[in-house]
Design a protein around this nucleic acid. Structure first.
Lengths: 190, 190
DNA sequence: CTTAAAAATTGATGTAGATCAATTCATTGC
DNA sequence: GCAATGAATTGATCTACATCAATTTTTAAG
């Protein structure tokens, strides 16, 4: 069942079968329908989610009512309002299913317990957050440096599994441009 | 001498005097003149730097020869090409002193040794990178959401110690706008 | 103090991408 | 299979900020 997740862990740390079992035992399995909200602004965020199946987005709704997508997540990705999760602040983001989805949830306090018992997991999540940091750094470099067309092409290259699966207006939103502009970019104008 | 740094550590972890000494013992002290390069593209990056005194910037030079500043660092900040440092890739960034500076360097392999001996330090750097991740997330949210004027005002609010100390054209570059535009923003136009 | 170099400002003009308003195309539920 | 709703496209116009070209102000070095 969770071979996928064990393989995911093994990319960064080596676990004994017992440790693997211990990790699996602290996860909870959930299924959600499309449009379900896993997180809403104001809520306490005690969980982060590993996607077994489906597709989700994390977005911010600004004062003017504009959505801004910060992250997508499909199979084998983690998603949450990480700011809120890490700092025990109220959520600022929505996390919503774009497709019917199946996820495993990991509770913060249970995880912190685990860190003390098996420091290897602290290492795992340090490495994970480090990669996320690098990805964001590169995203900022892109926005500073590249025009929208290049950013779109790089997005398609970097996330070939999202292109086609996620609506174009979502991608446009993620890239910080309008659906109209993205349409023209895809037509080869600009 | 390094009270500042010990205080910095104590914000996130509690150390015994022995552990504090052990940490200090693995650091190296350096002084650099303004314009010195601590890191250049292509180099191996084995160190991250804690700023005791002075001011530095980390920037990327794109194919068109344009600079893009990703980070400033003043007293009590860490700086490096973190992508290269974490992933043992060749540097993509320059790290350069904007002022004469005094830094402590921390070597990656020595640090990883330390993680095994004292897992508390793995925790410390996990928390550090987590905060850096959150800061980047908020920076992306800003660029998606806010006009240049708002971004500039927020920059001044968030880094009151940098505003005034760092040249405006550096700040403009960091924000991804031209010095001309920043000048007009500061004049109240736009 | 003087001069050169670096930084900031100002004005005129250009442009990528936004916005607004239809229109067409695709998907979903009945 | 047909509305109805959601998504994508197209065209006309607008705007925040870029670019280019001087000019002025500030800083630093001899």
């Amino acid at each position: 069942m969770y071979i996928q997740l064990l393989k995911h862990l093994s990319k960064d740390i080596e676990l004994t079968p017992d440790e693997e079992q211990e990790f699996l035992s602290i996860l909870e399995h959930h299924t959600f329908l499309k449009k379900s909200l896993l997180i809403q602004p104001g809520q306490k965020v005690t969980k982060e989610y590993y996607v077994l199946k489906g597709c989700l987005k994390a977005y911010y709704l600004d004062k003017a009512g504009q959505k801004h997508i910060l992250q997508f997540a499909i199979e084998d990705w983690w998603i949450s309002d990480f700011e809120a999760f890490f700092n025990a602040h109220p959520a600022q983001l929505y996390v919503e299913c774009i497709e019917d989805s199946e996820v495993l949830s990991l509770d913060k306090s249970v995880l912190e317990d685990l860190y003390f018992r098996i420091p290897k997991f602290e290492r795992f999540f340090r490495l994970k957050i480090t990669k996320a940091f690098v990805a964001l750094r590169n995203r900022i470099l892109s926005t500073l440096q590249k025009d929208s067309k290049t950013q779109y092409l790089e997005f398609c290259e970097q996330y070939p599994n999202l292109q086609g699966r996620v609506a174009n207006y979502h991608i446009a939103n993620y890239l910080g441009i309008t659906p109209e502009s993205l349409s023209r970019i895809r037509k080869g104008l600009y």
